[in-house]
C-alpha cells in the first residue's frame, strides 16, 4: 500500500449543505471516496491509500485538475483505492462533491 496526501487552496467553498458523503466501493479498478466538510472554506485535502505503488505523479495531476475544476473548498476527501484508472478517480471525485449538493 502507498499513502499519499495532497493539500490545496480552493477558490470557493464547495456548494451544498451536507456534512459528508460516501461514493464508490473498494474493488479491483474501483475506489471509494469519503468526503467530509471539516476544513476552512479555502482549504482542500485529499488523502489516498492505494494498492498501486509508484503513481504519485499521476495522483498529483488528477487531484490538482480536480481542485481546479470543482473548487472543493472546505472538504477533506479520503480515498481507499483498489487500483482505479485516473479517469475513474476523476469521476468518483466529482461524484463525491456533487453528492454534498443533492437533496434527499
Amino acid at each position: 500500500m502507498e499513502n499519499l496526501t495532497y493539500r490545496h487552496k480552493a477558490k470557493t467553498r464547495a456548494p451544498g449543505d451536507k456534512p459528508l458523503a460516501l461514493v464508490g466501493v473498494v474493488a479491483s479498478g474501483n475506489l471509494e471516496v469519503l468526503v467530509e466538510r471539516v476544513l476552512p472554506d479555502t482549504d482542500c485535502e485529499v488523502a489516498i491509500a492505494t494498492t498501486a505503488k509508484g503513481f504519485g505523479d499521476v495522483w498529483a495531476a488528477v487531484v490538482s485538475d480536480f481542485v481546479e475544476r470543482r473548487s472543493p473548498g472546505g472538504l477533506r476527501l479520503s480515498i481507499n483505492d483498489g487500483g482505479a484508472r485516473p479517469d475513474t478517480v476523476a469521476l468518483r471525485l466529482s461524484q463525491a462533491v456533487r453528492s454534498l449538493e443533492e437533496g434527499r
Binding site: 451536507k18 456534512p19 459528508l20 460516501l22 461514493v23 464508490g24 453528492s99
Partner: peptide, 12 residues
C-alpha cells in the same frame, strides 16, 4: 448518517 449517498448509480 442519512447523508451518506450510495456509490455508483443515480440517486433518483
Amino acid at each position: 448518517m442519512s447523508d451518506l449517498t450510495p456509490g455508483g448509480t443515480s440517486e433518483s
